[in-house]
Amino acid sequence: MDENSRARTWQTWSMAGACLAVDLFALVFINAAGAGGWRVAVLVLSTAVADLALAGPPKHAELVAVLRAGVVVLVPLLLRQPYLFEIPITPGQMVAGYRAGAWLPFPAALRALGALAGAVLGYALVRGGWWLDHLWAAGFIALGIAFVPWMVGRSNTSQLAHLSRLELMAERRAAAVARAVAEERSAIARDLHDVISHHVSAISMHAGVARMELAGGPGSAARRSVSQVEAASRSAMADLRRLLDVLHGQDPSPDRRQPGLGDIDELLDRVRAAGPPVHLTVAGDLGRLPAALDLAAYRILQEALTNALRHGDGGQVTVALGRADGDLALDVANTLGAPPRRDCASPGRGLAGVRQRVALHGGAFRCGPSADGRGWRLAVRLPVEDEA
Rank of each mutant, 00 (worst) to 15 (best):
E167R: 15
A180P: 07
L121F: 13
Q159P: 02
G92W: 00
V148E: 02
G129C: 05
T157G: 07
A137G: 10
G144R: 13
A109L: 03
P107N: 00
V177M: 08
M151E: 12
Y98E: 04
A137T: 10
M169E: 13
R127H: 05
Q159Y: 06
P149V: 05
R154G: 01
M94N: 13
V95S: 06
A100Y: 03
R111G: 08
L135E: 10
I89D: 03
S158V: 02
W130K: 06
W136N: 11
R172N: 15
A174S: 08
G129F: 02
G129V: 02
H162T: 10
L110W: 03
L160P: 10
E167C: 15
S155C: 05
F147Q: 11
I145S: 10
A175S: 12
R111H: 09
S155W: 12
L110N: 03
R127C: 06
V181Y: 12
F140K: 00
G92M: 02
I145E: 08
I145T: 09
F106R: 15
G118Q: 05
A178D: 12
G118M: 01
L110H: 07
Q93S: 13
F106K: 11
A175D: 14
L125Q: 08
A174F: 00
H162L: 14
F106A: 14
F106Q: 12
Y123F: 12
V120P: 03
V95R: 02
W103P: 06
R127V: 14
A175H: 07
L166Q: 12
A96E: 02
Q159V: 05
R111S: 07
G144A: 14
L168F: 10
W150F: 12
G129N: 06
L160R: 14
D133S: 11
A100D: 00
A178I: 09
F147H: 13
A146L: 05
S164Q: 14
